[in-house]
Design a binder for these strands. Structure first.
Length: 920
RNA sequence: GGGCGAAUAGCUCAGUUGGGAGAGCACGUCGCUUACACCGACGGGGUCACAGGUUCGAGCCCUGUUUCGCCCACCA
């Protein structure tokens, strides 16, 4: 990609000038396509493959942080499996989101003062398509900005031709199997959307309302019914028996067809079997007994409105009651509501209460706190209402889905979500799949106006197959948007056709999404997937948490600093890599995350840190002293150490990836690259890179390139852009670069080579690093001028050869004057005017600091250290003296305590000796 | 009314088979050392919500409590 090459790397990494360019290049090269993984030899044709379908975002608006998290996690997985050599497909798409999108467009129209009815169905749908085009393009652009490596050539939309065909196929099959049926049942009705909605779309909110205590007169010998009209104040005149009840919804009284109480009710039990006169309507209604009544609540008697309450509906069915519907589609009182016809439901409520009071049928009013269902999309209070709808009997499908999870065919993480899944599935009720909307998949059913025949099928019927005479009209309703979403893992691959993609990529490998749509979506995919294809659509469901702001508040459009949480703004300010890394390392699976902007800053700094590390490496390999033809070089201790640490990291990270612990893996990669590579190894190489020793220089160069190359590959799934940009520079500068793959994203995932763990080097380096830290610490404590090189005597005991080999490095990193550095195995005469440092494995160091006039400070320091050491010794001795511990703890744990004790005891001895020497 | 999650350094969070409490930011001291001040060196800071229990040993397992958040639920 020489066309992307910049001759010089800027001092600071600039995501803005990099990310778009790289994304376009990747896409143009076809790296996102599964075919390309084969072409480049990364994956083997017919070998293992990996497929994930993107949860299709709604085309309602802009992407938010939840989408960004979804994209980050899924792209991380995709890039990982691709690098692992799987033929990898990340399939993108979007959802028409029926009710949500229709609502948004209706709100837009309302701003211009028009409703969908003003436009008519055809024109309105055209307007929605226009909206869809705009927002779909925006969402795609936003996804690209996030760097996701999905195959745009396979992009799908739930309303496109192929998916509509899949929807129709699924509907017809389920219909023919008798699982889809039409009927009049109680459903949740949104009077604003003028549509049925599912149970999941009815959201309960707490409300402060009133509870009205009212009474209905009973027919008896003295009173046969009202003699005066409703509203006269004399309607109930003469009545002597009453039954009292409490209601929160007096506007439904006109729909009452009974009053229920219980046999054992002290005041009303005896009224069972009698007849009440329904106020307003003057309908005679029975007083019945039903178990559902709680004698302790309200008055212990309940008015029964079968058409407008779920409980009452059940009671009505049990007692064969009429169920008059008294509300219109828009929530107004209809012609069965007597004098209140035409009133809005809440106006009717007020009017009814007022009239009850006038007729002395209102006993009292109490404040009442309860929860009320609202429409998920427009927040209007939902009305339970009997209505003719299409239903899918999901019970048998749910049983199969439960079975699949129980058998482990599909695993859900975190595990607790499996229990939620079971609970919901086990209590599932028929799914109302029809919606009285315009935007969506039209229900593929026609009715004959002549004979009433109901016709469905894969072809639009031209005439009635039964009577052959009548006019056919298609059902005006559309399907619940989740019906098409439920087919997503296979409809996107070409189902019902046996396409190559369907054969190759189904079942897919992963469903990754937020836990908030487990029921809405995952449950439906599982049910419909098994029903339609005979196989669970994926073996793994990974559920991530919700993204909140740094104070745990849900990020919503009404927040004043909302733009701070707009992913695009974040990308502009910090870069997509920073956003991705932050989202991926800020939480654990299934747990919500509070996005702290300070973390974004840290992630941006991390990208810049890598950029500068690479700048250092690249500028130091510009004119390599020796080319790749040179044989094995003698690796120095830091080389052996960093390579071993890298290989250890590769093993750990791969293991963490395999167990979906991406956050932990990301942090480990960061720790390695920043602390070990940058702070230690790169610093350590400087001494050789700036020397005249060509051999040493080359060794350092080669190890730098090796470690940076592999480290970048590990980081790539988190930060695809900066790693690619750096890697390209590295590839161009490195002598071996031309044999590297074209892009980091199609280079193989690093393999851990166990044999190359170098325990010896790790141990020696730890010893050296510890001593360097101690010297630096002492310098700071005794206020040694930063630039000053000091003298040091290191008593190295058995480690003398190692220290001799690292003499220059030690001097360099600890700012010791090499001329004045004495390395010795033992030392008889220990200098008095010196700071003494005690390391592990018998290592000691003495810093004869000229500024050390005051020995008391040194004595104080040593005493403090001795105190800490003694405390350690006591702790370890305590444990080892405990027979319970030595007898029951695993051997390696006990041994570690023994080692620790021995080490600390040795340390104590040295500290005490030193103190004796100083205090006389 | 059931169920779930969270509670760890000032802040945001890690801590997966129970075995010497971690990161970033913030804070203090020092440093413009030819990769990086979007930096480096060094340092201070925690009865891991509370009370019990199991265990030789508990941030981690069990029971209960408190606070916050979420999900499910047909009580008028």
């Amino acid at each position: 990609m020489n066309e992307n090459e910049q001759p010089e790397m800027d001092k600071a990494y600039d995501p803005q000038s990099t990310e778009r360019r790289l994304y376009d290049w990747w896409e143009a090269k076809g790296f996102f396509r599964p075919e390309k993984t084969i072409e480049t030899g990364l994956a083997e044709a017919g070998g293992p493959r990996w497929c994930i379908t993107m949860p299709p975002p709604n085309v309602t608006g802009a992407l938010h942080l939840g989408h960004a998290l979804t994209a980050a996690v899924e792209d991380l997985m995709t890039r990982y499996y691709r690098m692992r050599g799987f033929e990898t497909l990340f399939l993108p798409g979007s959802d028409h989101a029926g009710i949500a999108t229709q609502n948004v467009v209706e709100r837009e129209l309302a701003k211009q003062g028009i409703s969908r009815y003003d436009l008519g169905r055809q024109k309105f749908i055209e307007r929605v398509w226009e909206w869809k085009d705009v927002y779909h393009a925006r969402i795609t652009e936003q996804h690209k900005r996030l760097g996701i490596s999905c195959d745009w050539e396979r992009e799908r939309f739930t309303l496109d031709e192929g998916l509509s065909h899949a929807v129709r196929t699924a509907f017809v099959r389920l219909f023919e199997k008798g699982l889809i049926y039409r009927g009049a049942y109680l459903v949740n009705w949104c009077p604003r959307c003028e549509s049925a909605i599912s149970d999941l779309e009815a959201i309960a909110h707490e409300h402060d309302d009133s509870l009205w205590y009212i009474r209905y007169p009973i027919v008896n010998a003295d009173w046969g019914g009202p003699a005066h009209p409703w509203g006269s104040g004399r309607w109930a005149e003469g009545a002597t028996d009453f039954i009292e009840m409490a209601t929160a919804r007096p506007e439904t009284i006109m729909g009452d067809t009974a009053v229920a109480t219980r046999e054992d009710h002290p005041r009303f039990g005896h009224l069972i079997g009698r007849t009440a006169v329904l106020p307003i309507m003057e309908r005679l209604i029975p007083i019945i007994s039903d178990e559902f009544v709680d004698p302790k609540f309200g008055t212990g008697a309940v008015k029964i409105t079968p058409a407008h309450d779920p409980d009452d509906y059940e009671v009505g069915l049990r007692h064969g009651l009429d169920a008059p519907t008294i509300l219109t589609d828009t929530g107004k009182m209809n012609e069965l509501a007597g004098p209140y016809e035409g009133l809005d439901r809440y106006d009717a409520r007020d009017a009814v209460v007022r009239d009850f009071e006038r007729e002395r049928l209102l006993i009292k009013t109490e404040p009442y706190h309860h929860s009320v269902a609202h429409c998920e999309r427009c927040h209007t209070v939902v009305e339970p209402r009997i209505s003719t709808q299409w239903f899918l009997n999901v019970k048998p499908l749910a049983d199969a889905a439960i079975e699949a999870v129980r058998r482990g065919e599909t695993t859900i993480i975190p595990e607790r979500e499996e229990r939620r899944f079971y609970h919901w599935m086990e209590n599932i009720r028929p799914w109302c799949i029809s919606r009285q909307l315009w935007w969506g998949h039209r229900i593929p059913v026609w009715y004959c106006d002549e004979c009433g025949e109901v016709i469905t099928g894969m072809e639009d019927p031209q005439r009635c197959p039964k009577c052959k005479r009548g006019e056919l009209g298609q059902d005006p309703d559309v399907l619940d948007t989740w019906f098409s979403s439920g087919l997503w893992p296979f409809s996107t691959l070409g189902w019902p056709d046996e396409t190559p993609d369907m054969r190759r990529f189904y079942p897919t490998d992963m469903r990754e999404t937020g836990y908030d749509i487990l029921f809405f979506w995952v449950a439906r995919e599982m049910m419909l997937g098994i029903e339609m294809t005979g196989q669970a659509p994926y073996p793994m469901v990974y559920l991530h948490g919700l993204v909140r702001n740094e104070h745990g508040k849900k990020v919503s459009k009404s927040m004043e600093n909302i733009e701070e949480y707009d992913p695009l703004n974040i990308v502009e300010r910090f870069g997509a890599d920073a956003l991705r890394y932050t989202l991926l390392t800020s939480s654990t699976p299934g747990n919500d995350m509070n996005l702290d902007p300070r973390r974004l800053e840290g992630a941006r700094n991390f990208a810049n840190k890598m950029w500068n590390a690479a700048r250092f490496v690249i500028s130091n390999i510009q004119s390599p002293t020796v080319g790749k033809e040179i044989g094995d070089l003698d690796a120095s201790l830091p080389d052996r150490w960093i390579v071993s640490r890298l290989h250890r990291l590769i093993g750990e990270v791969t293991e963490l990836f395999e167990s979906y612990q991406y956050g932990e893996a990301g942090r480990r990669i960061n720790d390695f690259l920043w602390s070990e590579l940058c702070d230690w190894y790169i610093e350590a190489t400087k001494i050789r890179l700036y020397s005249d020793d060509k051999r040493a220089r080359t060794a350092a160069q080669r190890v730098l390139v090796y470690v940076l190359d592999h480290g970048l590959r590990l980081l790539h799934p988190y930060m695809p852009f900066v790693t690619e940009e750096i890697w390209q520079h590295l590839k161009a500068a490195s002598p071996e670069g031309e044999s590297w793959p074209e892009s980091i994203m199609i280079s193989p995932w690093p393999e851990m080579e166990g044999a190359r763990l170098d325990v010896q080097a790790e141990g020696d380096m730890a010893l050296l690093m510890d001593l360097i830290r101690q010297i630096r610490n002492a310098r700071a404590e005794f206020d040694v001028m930063p630039g000053r090189r000091i003298a040091a005597i290191v008593v190295a005991d058995g480690k003398l050869p190692m220290f001799e080999a690292q003499r220059a490095l030690l001097s360099f990193l600890a700012k010791v004057d090499e001329e004045q550095l004495t390395l010795t195995r033992t030392l008889e005469e220990k200098p008095k005017k010196a700071v003494a440092l005690v390391g592990a494995e018998g290592v000691e160091a003495y810093l004869p600091l000229a500024g050390l006039v005051d020995l008391d400070q040194e004595i104080e320091r040593l005493r403090k250290e001795l105190g800490e050491t003694e405390q350690e010794i006591r702790r370890a001795q305590g444990m080892l003296a405990n027979e319970g511990f030595t007898g029951k703890a695993p051997e390696h744990v006990v041994q570690r305590q023994r080692d620790r004790l021995a080490e600390q005891e040795e340390r104590r001895e040295r500290l005490e000796a030193r103190l004796r020497a100083l205090t006389g």
